[in-house]
Computed example of a mutant assay.
Amino acid sequence: MSAIKLPDFKASLKNMYARTYADHFNQITRLYYGDLTPPIDNPSNLIREQYQQPEAMSLQQHQLNTEVSLPWGIKSDVMFTINKIKQQILDEKKNAL
């Protein structure tokens, strides 16, 4: 963080970066139409699969804050921010249940 401070004026510039990780699990159930006679171990012909989707999210932020003191007790605050957000699926794994 860098800043300028005068009696009636303040300005600061901040740069921030954060990265978070999360695991998401999705489950899908579908009917198998390949053979009309159900197998012995799966009489309902339903197939369940589970997907694991690890995800990473990164946030980069640049922020400029200014504060100006004007006569008559008037104070002005201004903030300008640029955000860059990126989401990424790292590796998708599929498991049959």
Results as ranks from 00 to 15, higher is better:
residue 96 A to F: 11
residue 87 Q to Y: 03
residue 30 R to M: 13
residue 84 K to H: 15
residue 81 T to Y: 07
residue 77 D to S: 13
residue 26 N to E: 01
residue 16 M to Q: 12
residue 17 Y to R: 10
residue 82 I to W: 10
residue 93 K to D: 07
residue 35 D to E: 05
residue 67 E to N: 01
residue 59 L to Y: 01
residue 91 D to S: 15
residue 26 N to C: 11
residue 58 S to C: 07
residue 76 S to Q: 02
residue 76 S to E: 00
residue 22 A to K: 02
residue 12 S to G: 12
residue 54 P to Q: 01
residue 54 P to F: 05
residue 67 E to H: 04
residue 9 F to E: 08
residue 5 K to I: 12
residue 82 I to P: 03
residue 21 Y to I: 06
residue 68 V to I: 15
residue 43 P to A: 11
residue 72 W to G: 01
residue 53 Q to Y: 11
residue 9 F to L: 00
residue 49 E to V: 12
residue 15 N to S: 11
residue 45 N to R: 06
residue 64 L to Q: 00
residue 82 I to H: 12
residue 37 T to Y: 02
residue 23 D to Y: 05
residue 54 P to S: 00
residue 45 N to C: 00
residue 6 L to E: 09
residue 66 T to M: 14
residue 58 S to I: 04
residue 42 N to Y: 07
residue 17 Y to V: 02
residue 96 A to R: 10
residue 6 L to T: 06
residue 8 D to K: 03
residue 63 Q to Y: 10
residue 40 I to N: 06
residue 40 I to Y: 04
residue 39 P to E: 03
residue 84 K to L: 09
residue 38 P to H: 02
residue 51 Y to M: 05
residue 74 I to S: 12
residue 68 V to N: 00
residue 78 V to A: 03
residue 92 E to G: 05
residue 97 L to S: 14
residue 87 Q to N: 09
residue 67 E to Y: 00
residue 62 H to K: 07
residue 5 K to D: 09
residue 78 V to P: 02
residue 72 W to E: 01
residue 38 P to N: 13
residue 13 L to V: 09
residue 2 S to Q: 13
residue 21 Y to N: 05
residue 73 G to Y: 05
residue 40 I to T: 09
residue 48 R to S: 08
residue 97 L to T: 15
residue 79 M to P: 00
residue 25 F to I: 09
residue 20 T to R: 00
residue 73 G to M: 06
residue 33 Y to Q: 13
residue 95 N to P: 03
residue 94 K to S: 12
residue 46 L to C: 12
residue 70 L to A: 13
residue 11 A to R: 10
residue 65 N to Y: 03
residue 56 A to L: 03
residue 25 F to N: 10
residue 58 S to G: 04
residue 88 Q to F: 14
residue 40 I to S: 09
residue 53 Q to E: 05
residue 48 R to I: 06
residue 7 P to R: 04
residue 66 T to Y: 03
residue 91 D to T: 14
residue 47 I to G: 12
residue 40 I to W: 06
residue 91 D to Y: 08
residue 59 L to P: 02
residue 1 M to E: 02
residue 29 T to L: 05
residue 93 K to E: 13
residue 1 M to L: 03
residue 42 N to V: 01
residue 68 V to T: 13
residue 37 T to F: 01
residue 28 I to A: 08
residue 67 E to G: 04
residue 90 L to H: 00
residue 49 E to Y: 12
residue 44 S to V: 02
residue 82 I to Y: 00
residue 46 L to R: 10
residue 72 W to N: 11
residue 27 Q to W: 11
residue 44 S to H: 12
residue 59 L to W: 10
residue 20 T to D: 07
residue 36 L to F: 01
residue 19 R to L: 08
residue 28 I to E: 11
residue 60 Q to V: 03
residue 45 N to Y: 03
residue 1 M to P: 05
residue 12 S to W: 02
residue 31 L to M: 04
residue 24 H to D: 00
residue 75 K to I: 14
residue 44 S to M: 03
residue 67 E to V: 04
residue 54 P to G: 01
residue 2 S to P: 05
residue 77 D to W: 12
residue 33 Y to T: 09
residue 86 K to C: 10
residue 16 M to A: 11
residue 38 P to E: 15
residue 22 A to R: 07
residue 37 T to M: 10
